[in-house]
Design a protein around this nucleic acid. Structure first.
Lengths: 124, 124
DNA sequence: CTTGACCCTCACATTAGTGTCAGGGTTTAC
DNA sequence: GTAAACCCTGACACTAATGTGAGGGTCAAG
């Protein structure tokens, strides 16, 4: 199928499909006229790519595991677990930072509300 | 003082000080030779900017409140509270997304570990 | 044989703060 | 008067996936 049909079937933009190819995630054949030619299996490939992107993996990380996971169960691909574990650490770090900022923000908000309830003043 | 001294006193790079000026957060005078001339008060200004950046505010958001908060208590500046509250909402949304991803990741990790403990296979 | 829908590549824009380099003045101390 | 240290502007790089547009082939239906 052509790129337009793959885009329609997967809901992924043509631009993104070309980008995935540039990053080595998809390698369609080319027709004589230069058009990309995708097999029906490409639909599953694209869905897998989207799934991993939604997990926060980068295209580079995905490229390292995509071939294996498309042909096996995840547990069978030795590269998947360390990537997941590293991503989990990053996520935890981000949550930690955000939680800290959140505490600071709520403290300041409460402080402002308290002061205003005491004096009732405000200005630009 | 010159920009180098301000950078040294605040621990903020010269590059960043110029950027803050470009974004309207600092407006030093200029000497006849074109050098930026900062008052001692600029040290407090830069520290305030850093504080708000660390709270996740953008330079645009900071520019809207900086003048007031440098001269008053936060509670006295009417623009501060809505910015804090909006930022809090964004943070909560981010934490929510990350938490969801985290749950998905740990589920997959556990699943992999479970499958491996049952079959003991792996491969690249 | 022309129109419209499809495809191609190349490349800039987006976010946001900071690093870094080029190319070039100024000042200070020797 | 020159070297070192300081300052200036302008501009590209970085991250990462995607949008968008220019400029230009291809194909299918009429």
């Amino acid at each position: 199928m052509n790129i337009g049909e793959l885009a329609e079937r997967t809901g992924v933009s043509i631009r993104s499909l070309r980008y995935y190819e540039q990053k080595g995630l998809l390698t369609p054949l080319r027709k004589e006229n230069g058009y990309r030619e995708y097999t029906p299996f490409a639909v599953e490939q694209v869905q897998a790519i989207q799934l991993y992107l939604n997990l926060g993996l980068s295209t580079d990380e995905i490229s390292g595991i995509l071939q294996c996971v498309l042909q096996n169960k995840e547990a069978f691909c030795k590269d998947v677990l360390p990537i997941y574990q590293q991503k989990l650490q990053e996520i935890d770090k981000q949550i930690q930072v955000l939680t800290s900022i959140r505490a600071n923000l709520t403290e300041r908000i409460d402080s402002i509300l308290l002061e205003r309830s005491l004096s009732g003043q405000e200005e630009g």
